[in-house]
Write a protein that binds this DNA or RNA. Structure first.
Lengths: 192, 192, 192, 192
DNA sequence: CATGAATGAGACTTCATTCAT
DNA sequence: GATGAATGAAGTCTCATTCAT
């Protein structure tokens, strides 16, 4: 049975391989092999390796946002609850998809990614931006510390990314209790 | 008479280029050119590219630790003061040496670095380990949250690393006030 | 459609160049050029230079053995006749293929070859081993001198290899009469 | 205490290293180190690597000839005795100096050596040539087979060189009895 | 004289990309 | 459309040779 969509196979193979072997450890031949596709075929769907990787990044980002939007709570709830929901949702997503996290780390530390990196999750042009909305409202309500948005973002999610690295390396074993405590600690960091 | 500077020139060139172009974006030829040295000369001082990069990493790590030890405060002081000192010292070092930060990020995301990554700053074998001592004491005194060391570390310094990324990209402009607030917010994250 | 000849072209080019310029005098670029093939193409067929050279050696060895088996005489014949057949066959093959002889000399004097060298023609594991069989039977029948197999081999074929060297250098011009006399002289050396 | 003659040290180091690691496995740096001499110093005594190696070859050849001349027997003796003396002397020399043999094999199979190879031991210009004298006289007296000198040489010494290779590789263990038998077998090969 | 640091040509090998089938 | 054989630029590393000290 043929796979319905070769494009998806290629992207999935790319995601896995780059998460595992890093950027330059992944050759187009490897991707072709894993996706069960001729090396040349990749170029029917993507103009270049850079292009392919950017596409994977984009898709991943969209998936995460979608997941967060779904997990997002009604704007009516107290800000603290909304934060806990958001941060827990993000954490759980990353824990469930460590490969996505590994890929994004590789991506943002590559020459390809550095150009894309600018203003992703906090971008003004991104109307769906849940994070921006959340932080702006929190500052206005004087519930969050009076700091630039980027700093609030760093305080809120920096620990979660750092935690993920240790989790993937096996330095910590996360469970619901531990995760809950950590997310609450993040709240302590941003709340006034 | 030997030119002991040549070794330093090579390491400096490596540091800058890798910070700028990443790991695989930096060729030995580029390093040689920037250091004003024949490509083959590098191999008189370092056995391989990997070796050279490990040496740069080591030197950088030592410099940072030295800087922190110097900035470290007497153990007699209250824990909160010690933390603010430590975190501010680290932040200032990184802000003053953004290239060091960029290099280390590249390093820890490379196949070379991943082996070194394990337990560096928190290593038991590292007797000078200021961070470990600090966190262990804080937990014992019930001043810090009762969490695994790695998580405390993530809460305390995750925001600082995230902040550095945005700072380097120019998304935030840091001054002493802002830095002070951020570091205090980190304390809020870890304190009980 | 695949070009199965390309692999042969590469092996032929390797054979000729190494026979002529020796092992380290032959670069992969030279091989590519002579075979009318991009340098990188060689690596589609052979994992490394060492690999390629081993393959050429193997093929050559097989060809020689095949040629000898074909020239080999019925085991019923007198031992002397069998020897003359064998030695003449080998000599003629080498005279007809001086390049093969040059290559093998290079090969057995290279670090690559030295590992292969052990027990090739006399190997117990080589079931087709005509030489071993011949010598063992000759000793048992008390027709050949009572000496270790390796020494019998040296007595029988040492002169032929030495002759080949002089022949290739043009010091001697061989004809059938001369060859016949030489081979008979070799028999005088091994017979009791 | 300083070594009286650096030139000799360099040649000795070259001899040993090339015998052991082959031609291209021996770098000028290695030679310098083994000879306890700066790499650049070698060039005070020898114009180039090729030059140095040719010098070693020359010296070795002279040593062997000298050794043979010394071991050579009075021309009055029967030819058979003279041959046994000669061949045994050569064999013993090579067995006692396996490194010399290894070097010469490397040398004659290198692009450097191939140019020198022409007419060494049988050279007309070499007045001391014991071998040539011996064979010519033997043919004239109708004691040796009526064959070109090169072929007689191949028959007489080809087995000895082949034997040496196996001896060095450890395939045969030579003792006086075995050597005597082999040398006599060589005589069987050349005598009429 | 002696040194050995410095050099750069050149070796082997990989890989993103192309193109004939 | 799909393929994968072919390519050649570029990367890491070695080493014979030079030259300032």
């Amino acid at each position: 049975m043929k796979t319905p969509d070769k494009r998806d196979d290629i992207m999935q193979a790319t995601l896995e391989l780059i998460a595992e072997h890093g950027f330059h450890g992944t050759s187009m031949a490897m991707i072709g092999e894993r996706a069960d596709v001729g090396a040349g075929t990749i170029y029917r769907y993507f103009k270049s390796k850079e292009n392919l990787i950017n596409a994977v990044n984009q898709e991943l980002t969209e998936k995460i946002i979608a997941s967060l939007l779904q997990a997002g709570t009604a704007t009516g709830e107290p800000l603290r609850e909304r934060f806990l929901h958001l941060a827990t949702g993000l954490s759980k997503y990353l824990i469930d998809h460590p490969i996505h996290f590994r890929f994004l780390e590789q991506y943002y530390n590559s020459p390809y990614g550095v150009n894309f990196r600018r203003e992703r999750l906090l971008s003004k042009s991104n109307n769906d931006n849940i994070f921006r909305d959340f932080f702006e409202e929190g500052v206005k309500q004087k519930i969050l510390k009076d700091l630039p948005l980027h700093l609030l973002f760093a305080l809120a999610f920096g620990p979660i990314f750092a935690m993920m690295r240790d989790h993937i390396l096996g330095f910590i074993v996360l469970n619901d209790t531990l995760l809950k405590k950590t997310v609450e600690a993040c709240w302590d960091g941003v709340k006034r």
